[in-house]
Amino acid sequence: MARKSWAPALLSFLILFLFLGVWHVATLPEKGAQVVDDEYAKLVGAAAASGQKSAMPGPVDVGKKVWSHLADPFYVRGTNDKGIGIQLAYSIMRVLVGFFLAALVAIPLGFLIGMSPTVYKALDPFIQVLKPVSPLAWMPLALFTIKDSGLSAIFVIFICSLWPMLINTAFGVMSVRKEWLNVARTLEVGPLRKAFRVILPAAAPTIMTGMRISIGIAWLVIVAAEMLVGGTGIGYFVWNEWNNLSITNILSAILAIGLIGMLLDAVLNRLAKAVTFPE
């Protein structure tokens, strides 16, 4: 049976339009019903008094807002009014810096753990205790010691990216097939050449999976971290718009966060495919 390649896409669009339709109908302004007393209605104007404009926007409002953000994503009009593009750029920068610092620590350390059962047994209790700690629990400690909110956010990203990469690297190195190691042994391959030419390529797919999990978690955590530290970033933007009670802006930000998260995952997935070998 020939599969219709357009069928899933069509279904996706149907679900999208159904969702937008239900959303649109649910947020339509109720006409005529006055919800406040007459004197107050005179004071605030007919629109507000009749509840015509709910705080929950419809899809058209959000669409317009998203369009305005896309039209001018990088404006700066004061500390609390920056374009969504700038806010996202701050967040991406923090995630990437924290993520790469974590990779720099986790991959060599994971290699060591994977190669040496002694190191593995020695470090395992620490990893088991520290891994389940919410990265945000480190925030006060980071703020106190680093005394810089931006760097503290990066530190939180570093901590949350560390564990999946560390564990996956160690696991990947540990489970390199014995026969490949035996090939290296019978060919009298030196330790460095063995590490880079046999163990690293053999463990690379597992390491990349760890990196993919890490960047996903980092992107989840950055929003919460920036809500706490404030100043810049998409997390701060969301919190700021909550204070402004601009649900439209919050919804635009949610959409942007989702899209960037998808993009980061896609990039890592592409890299993982590049190092994967068929057996």
Partner: peptide, 18 residues
């Protein structure tokens, strides 16, 4: 120990798949 003077042909061929 292992030596390049003695080459092994493994049952599972043991080629490096990458």
């Amino acid at each position: 120990g292992p030596s390049l003077d003695r080459a092994v042909i493994f049952q599972s061929h043991a080629l490096l798949p990458w």
